[in-house]
Structures are given as structure tokens and as C-alpha cells.
Design a protein around this nucleic acid. Structure first.
Lengths: 324, 324
DNA sequence: CTGAAAGCGCTTACAG
DNA sequence: CTGAAAGCGCTTACAG
């Protein structure tokens, strides 16, 4: 059968409890003993039994990662990337992750409740920040530890969360276009819902006013048409692609006639020319921060919930140019 | 503390072992006792402790799902969708899933080895079928049970796998265009690597010859130009978008001048007009089959490894039309 | 059909 | 700094 702690103990000439302590690198154990025990583990090819650890310690050392209900499939490449980043980071800290997916919010909530009550997870990372969300409400209500990726509309001081500075990204987009010589710049979105939109739009607006330009909001649909704009700040890349196609139908070229700047730096930004000038939101950084904050939350028992801001980066490509 | 099997046993006036048997709905237990025990579980709000079950039974009841190394990010929306489908199906059968991700193949292999030796998983589902893959080789070598999503180039009789019938999808694409009146139809791909390409291309080729048309292969790059083709079968939707953009530069419109049919029905197919006529590969079905085959593999101990073929469906949209 | 008992492989006060 | 012992919450032959 598999090698256990007892086999190692016998081989090293110590008690099983000592092996256990070496396993977690307890400072109580002498270096000498550690070396001896580790050698025995090595020689025997020992690997821990996770289930036994969990049962004995009462800690699962795993985090449940909650994905948005599938209908809400906005920007899918994002999720695969965060998952990878979260998983890598978790492994670094020797914790596991369990995924929670579902087609409806109610399914998610049910799974979250079950997982926690079965002691499979110590808490959750929630990958979306909808206006209202029954999962979040449940976690808050039951005082289950969790970290939110995104910015909640309410209770920001009760929720540990990680996000980019979307207001600043709004500012920066406007500033970049203005600095290229553009004066008439609109903000284009397909939806007015969500904190992300509100923050980016607000930043854009503030910058425009500060620079004495008139802000203007365009809600995209397939009949959208431009007045005199030569610059566009677009909510995300899928919308940007649609906007550019629409402009082409009107005989307007990007970037010759209008410059387009957008957000996320997803796979969509380099499919067809013009490749998109866009803000990279640093998904790897977002994912990593999310697990680090979770660990801090559950281990250090700090009394408050903070917000972590991950820096972004502007990626210059083909969809922006100086005003002609 | 949490409610255990003992509490339930006491309340129901039976032994803990009986409760355990009720938990797995053992046929040995009388209906009457089951009812009594379930009532007690209900009233006490019992939930099982998964770690204890795993430790006592020696079965983890969880499947490791191996994602491709991130560089290989082809068609990312695909992975989020299969994940969801796999997760839903797994839950239905009361098994868990653990994800294995990494930036390099070697990382994946290392994780797979560790997970299995720590008894976290009973085996794996591998979500990609590269020409060579050290993960697959490792699993084969160690005789660890796994199911492959895709078709392996070699050892098809030693690997249980799930896939679409890509040859047939090649046939169907050619047939559909021919039936629309097109005669000069090329197959367009950006890479000649991989089973998927080979099979789709072969099916296309066979159909063309059968119908007395001349098959022709075009490898896409940004200078690609058409001769006299009026129909194109394109490997996937991202390539299709690029092809359509390239055609536009040459003054050719889709579908007026050339019809384009492609594969996968991903999010890319309905971003901009013309929306793409494409084959839906039934990702939900693929994911579900993958876990069902895994369960059959580990539970029934059949002696052989089979291939499961999931049906596809042609989705008619705007990129194809009768020949003018 | 059900019970009593041993055991799965760890952790963790408690003692020394 | 280390050991002996109890315990985590289940499962599963074995017996009847």
C-alpha cells in the first residue's frame, strides 16, 4: 500500500507525531530531526494523504471559486485566464481550489451552501460583481469568508475585493485621445449596467470636463451613427469590433477617420485589423491578488475588509492615431 | 459542532453503520429503516463530511480535469463551456472535479502526478489531444485511468476518447456548399497540425472527389488571395473572420461573392455581420460524455477503450448563400 | 437486515 | 524538542 506517516516514522526512528510536525515545518522540531525525517520521506517516496489531513485538522485548505452564471458569458476568455492564475497562486501557497459553476444563480447558491457545509472549502472567491447577487448575499449573511473580484455596488466596507481602478482607466483613455489631438470624443457602451461601466464612464467624463471638452454617451446598437466625433472610448473589445464594423458601413475608417480605444486586451483585440489599442487589465495580477487576500482574510483575522487595486497598462496598437 | 453520523444514529435509534449504509442507499437496508434515518438526518440538518468518506473508503470520487497549457489558447471560450458541462454532469453523479492548469506541459505533468499520488483524484479527463503530450504519455505509462477529449493520433485503441466526427463534418461542409450551387470550393486553414484539421480536410476532400469537384487547400496568411473560388470551408471561426476581412480588402463580399462555412459555433461567430454559418459541435454533450465515460471506465472495469462520437449540428446564418 | 469493532492516515493538546 | 494517546467522521468486513 501507500507509504504513510508511520512508515516514515519507523524508518527515521521517531514518532509519527514528529513526522507530522516536520510535514508542516514546525519550528518546534530540531533541524537535525527534520533532516533525518525528510531523508526517510524521500527514500520511501512519501506523499501525504490530503483527506486524512483535512479530517484531522478540520481545515480543508481549499477555496471555492465561483463563476458567473453561464448566461452572463461576457468576455469569456477572461475567466479561463483568471482560473489559471488563481490555480497557480493557490498551488504556490499549497491550497487547492474547487470550482463552482452553474447555469443559474440559484444553482450557484445551492452549490456554495453545500460545499461549505460539507467542509470541502474554507470559503470562496467570487468572480463577478453583479448589481445584486444572491450568492454574495448568502455569504454575507452566513459570515462565510470570501473575496470578490470586482467592485460591489453596496457594502464596500464589508467585502474584501480586488479590482482595477476603472475610474482611472476612464481618465486615461480620454487623456490619451485628447493628447493625440482629438476634441470630440464619445464614450460608447452596449449597456449602462454594472459598476465597471459606471466607473469608466465617470473617469472619462471627469477628464473631458477637466480638459474643457464636452462628454457624450452613446449606447451602441446596430443603427448607431456618429456625428462629428473623431475619437471613441469603447467599453470592451467585442463592442469595439461591432462599432468598427458599423463605422465601415458608414464609410468611416479606423484610425484614419476615427480613433478607437478600448478595454481588456482580450483575444478579441488582435483578430482583424485594425488591431485594437486597449488597456490590459492584468488578469494574472487580479487572480493572484484574489487568493492572497483570501488567505490573509482567513489566517490573519484582520477586523476589516479592504480593496486591492491592480495596476493596468495601455497597449498601443492600430486603432488610434493623431487627429488628421 | 457539526452533526455527524453518530448524532443521526442516536436520534434514529440505530447504529452508525446503518446510517452510513442509508447514506449510500444500500439495498441491504429496509425501507422502513431508511425512512426513519432520513427523517433524523433531515431534522438534524446532517451533511456528510467528505474528507472522512474519502479517507475511510479510499476513493476520492473526484476527477482531475486537465486544461491545455495556456500558450495553446486556441478557442478559449470552448474551455469555459466544457468546464461548466463537466462540472454539472459530475455533480449529477455526485463526484467532484479538480482542475489542473499550467503554463507549460511539464507543470501539468507534475501536478497530475502529485494529485494522483496524494489520492486527491481517481483519474483524469484531458481536454486536449496534441500530437505528442507528456501528460498523456505519463498517464498511459502509469496506467492511471483517463478519458481524452479529442482524437489521439496514436494508440486510439488504448485511450478512451470522446470527439465529434470531424471527417463527417468535412463531408457535410462540402456537401452543403455544393448543394448551394458552388463548384469551386477551397478548404482554408491556418495550420496543418492536429487531427482535427486532418479529419475535416479529409472529409471535405472525399466529398469533393465524390462529387467530381477539384479539392484545394489554402493555408491562410494575410496575403492570401482567391482565384475563382465561390465557396470556402474554413477551419474555425477566428480564421473565418480573418479570411472575411482579407476578402473585403480584395473587394469580395460574403456571401454575395463567396460563401463561407466554418466550425465550432463559438462566441466569435456572431460578433459582426455577416454572422457565420457554422457547425455547432455540442460542447455540452462533449463535456457530459467525458465524465460518463470516465465513470464507466473506473467503475465497470471494461477491458477495452472506446470512442464516443457526439453529434453536431449545422447552424445556418449569413455567411453562405446560393451561387449567383 | 442490523450491530459492534477495527481501521483509514493524519493532527494536536498534554506531558515530560 | 519529542512521544503516547485520543480523536477527526466515516466505511466495511465480519457476525449473527
Amino acid at each position: 500500500m501507500a507509504v504513510t506517516i508511520k512508515d516514515v516514522a519507523k524508518k527515521a526512528g521517531v514518532n509519527a507525531s514528529t513526522v507530522s510536525r516536520v510535514l508542516k515545518d514546525s519550528p518546534e522540531i530540531s533541524e537535525k530531526t527534520k533532516v533525518k525525517v525528510r531523508k526517510a520521506m524521500q527514500e520511501l517516496g512519501y506523499t501525504r494523504n490530503v483527506a486524512a489531513q483535512i479530517l484531522a485538522s478540520g481545515k480543508s485548505n481549499t477555496i471555492g471559486v465561483v463563476f458567473p452564471p453561464v448566461e452572463d458569458k461576457s468576455n469569456q476568455p477572461f475567466y479561463m485566464k483568471v482560473l489559471t492564475s488563481i490555480n497557480e497562486t493557490a498551488r504556490k501557497y499549497d491550497v487547492s481550489i474547487a470550482v463552482v459553476t452553474g447555469y443559474k444563480e440559484s444553482e450557484l447558491k445551492q452549490q456554495v451552501a453545500l460545499m461549505y457545509s460539507e467542509k470541502r472549502v474554507d470559503g470562496f472567491i467570487v468572480l463577478y460583481a453583479g448589481q445584486t447577487d444572491s450568492v454574495r448575499d448568502y455569504l454575507l449573511d452566513k459570515k462565510i469568508p470570501f473575496v470578490l473580484l470586482g467592485t460591489p455596488t453596496e457594502k464596500q466596507n464589508e467585502i474584501t475585493h480586488v479590482d482595477n481602478d476603472n475610474v482611472l482607466m476612464g481618465h486615461e483613455a480620454a487623456r490619451y485621445l485628447i493628447d493625440l489631438g482629438h476634441d470630440e470624443i464619445s464614450f460608447v457602451t452596449d449597456t449602462k449596467d454594472g459598476e465597471v461601466f459606471k466607473e469608466r464612464y465617470q473617469g472619462y467624463q471627469d477628464e473631458m470636463l477637466k480638459r474643457k471638452r464636452q462628454p457624450k454617451l452613446l449606447v451602441f446598437d446596430e443603427d448607431m451613427s456618429l456625428q462629428t466625433e473623431t475619437g471613441l472610448v469603447v467599453m470592451d473589445e467585442v463592442v469595439a469590433l461591432k462599432v468598427i464594423a458599423r463605422l465601415a458601413e458608414q464609410g468611416l475608417k479606423v484610425p484614419e477617420d476615427v480613433s478607437v480605444i478600448t478595454y481588456n486586451n482580450s483575444a478579441f483585440s488582435t483578430i482583424v485589423h485594425p488591431y485594437l489599442t486597449t488597456f490590459d487589465i492584468n488578469i494574472v495580477g487580479l487572480g493572484a491578488a484574489t487568493v492572497e487576500k483570501f488567505l490573509a482574510l482567513t489566517q490573519n483575522e484582520r477586523g476589516f475588509h479592504d480593496k486591492t487595486i491592480i495596476p493596468f497598462e495601455l497597449i498601443l496598437r492600430e486603432s488610434t492615431d493623431r487627429k488628421k
